[in-house]
Design a protein around this nucleic acid. Structure first.
Lengths: 357, 357
DNA sequence: CTGTTAGCGCATTCAA
DNA sequence: TTGAATGCGCTAACAG
């Protein structure tokens, strides 16, 4: 590898000082440099294939124009879309992105963030989803980072709201929309195959579920709630599904915390010989590819926008570090498809399986 | 933002010199430091929340332990999966990743790479897909980078094979597999809705298509090939589809260059009242979510492995810069699903347009 | 308008 | 074993 040309080399070749080179290359305003000189510098730089050293620049200027982004897994389409949104904003603003993933593990995230900070990123965007850490630990950690003066935005989780900027979608409203949809179809026994309570979006979806029931004069039945995580495998979903269906009376509809769970749920129903949506309605959340192609009734959210808004907010904070932390909530909308329908008993004459209300 | 502790601060607090701090923190072998001193340094660093400055480290050491990754679009599941594979390898090796996207535009890629190089990435992984630049331009560009002594791996395109390391899947073999599958079902008039010839994978798929035909003693008919890009929209696909179906005799099967094109093709067939697979077989390529959920017969490839292999190769080259450029070809396999079947004429007595299976 | 000077924070000689 | 000195490549004051 041949030695890279430095600013000094350019200066020498152009017959000027290092300062002049810097001035020309950084297009400083309020410093007028004769076109002739400027051109000599530019030519020399081109001839030498000069590439200003970004590390040094960052070192001297005290900012790197780089933001660190951490997502749980890059192969989740949701997270990839968030990153895409972030990238779109950063690119057009001349920023770079250091990307890391946490594999959903808090310890990994912590380590990765440490590395990002060592590399002096100016800001941090974290799509924070941990199912393995208490809220207080999370808040302590995030608070510490913010306290260090690092700009940070947390996406899709508002556990750290108040400490740093958060960008989420309106999970509670989404859940409310979908449960209200089921209620308006005539369902009264509506179960929730949830995702536990460690992630704020899961908590919000459950809260929306209960709120919608109460608004309709229905008392939430804890026996109709099951599930521990967004990422349960087929067996775990099947177990949860069976537990829910053993309630008495059994639910006529199940609202699942995401589309993947809904897909598994539908599979479990199929295995049990239960016809969807005729005997059982199933709704999901998130409007992923799985939901789309399988015609699952779901809630649409827009991860690209989430990324975009996060990046915009981060850039704003970097320009004005003292603004108050904000919680940005993006709207969602119901997408009614073919896995939800009126319950059996509200249609024609009920058969053996279900009693009349 | 409070001032960050520097190595000097740590040295002062531990009552040692800067050198000692550096020695301790970098765990240099062949330098024995008394446990007592070492511990004092470690404690001081912890107390001060010392974070070694990665920029300076990179500057002084001449390597940043960072690789630049450029993909066309992060919201494509294929590209996201590649990046995920790359990340998996980098993480476990203590490397970081600067990520950029090109939006499929050569000029953007060039600009982004320039920025990455300014930031002194040690290596580059490019998922290079351009439909807008001549092969020679591409090779000149890549050759220039390699010539500069920058380690580079190109993924999913072998246009630059010989100049830098390339990692692709066996596109030609994949196309051959799928066309052979169609032939073995009895098809003789097999069309190809291709993706033009600017991307090497598209060229390879077409080559495999023609090879399979020839191996079966069928002469490729240029009139049965259409299409200009992987990213044609519905209207464009529809136009291509119509053109293909106007051939005489019309094809009984269409091999599309990717699953999305196949999905559009199926939609176009639906709009034309053509039953799939009964009247027309359609095959895709890539085994994406669209293909999976729509039951499209396709070729499975493994983008995560592609990313993984690329990263491994890059790290190897960084440790041994003079190894010869290699072209790594990953295997693919046929996934037969429900959009392909024997052609109409080879079954029972053909009726006018529709018959009973 | 342009050159000189002084760091940025750390790793790495070379001495002690 | 540890410390003092040097330099990585560049920008920003400050002069001239």
């Amino acid at each position: 590898m041949r030695r890279r040309a430095t600013g000094k080399d350019v200066a020498a070749r152009a017959g000027v000082s290092l300062t002049t080179v810097s001035l020309v290359l950084n297009r400083r305003q309020n410093v007028a440099i004769p076109d002739e000189t400027r051109q000599r510098v530019l030519d020399a730089a081109r001839d030498l294939g000069y590439r200003p050293n970004g590390l040094v620049r960052g070192l001297v200027r005290g900012r790197t124009q780089t933001v660190g982004v951490i997502v749980p897994r890059l192969d989740s389409s949701f997270h990839a879309a968030v990153v895409h949104g972030v990238q779109g904003v950063l690119r057009t603003s001349g920023w770079r992105m250091l990307l890391a993933d946490s594999e959903h593990r808090f310890e990994d995230e912590r380590r990765e963030v440490e590395l990002l900070l060592q590399h002096r990123v100016d800001g941090l965007i974290s799509v924070a989803l941990f199912d393995d850490v208490p809220l207080s630990t999370l808040r302590d950690w995030v608070g510490g980072i913010a306290n260090d003066g690092v700009a940070m935005v947390v996406v899709d989780d508002h556990s750290a709201a108040g400490l740093v900027d958060c960008v989420t979608t309106d999970d509670e409203q989404g859940a409310r929309l979908i449960v209200s949809h089921l209620i308006s179809l005539g369902h009264r026994r509506i179960a929730h195959l949830g995702a536990g309570d460690s992630m704020s979006s899961a908590r919000s979806r459950r809260a929306g579920y209960e709120a919608a029931l109460r608004e309709a004069g229905l008392e939430p039945d804890p026996g109709l709630v099951s599930g521990a995580s967004y990422f349960m495998n087929a067996d775990e979903v099947q177990a949860s599904f069976r537990r829910l269906m053993q309630a008495s009376p059994p639910p006529s509809a199940i609202f699942c915390a995401n589309d993947d769970l809904a897909a598994e749920c539908i599979a479990a129903a199929g295995a049990a010989g239960i016809a969807i949506p005729y005997e059982l309605s199933v709704a999901g959340y998130g409007d992923t590819a799985a939901g789309h192609f399988q015609g699952i009734t779901t809630i649409h959210q827009d991860p690209v926008s989430m990324g975009r808004r996060s990046a915009e907010r981060l850039l704003k904070r970097l320009n004005a570090p003292d603004i108050e932390p904000e919680h940005i909530v993006l709207p969602v909308r119901l997408v009614a498809r073919s896995t939800t329908a009126p319950p059996l008993e509200s249609r024609s004459a009920p058969q053996h399986r279900q009693a009349n209300p």
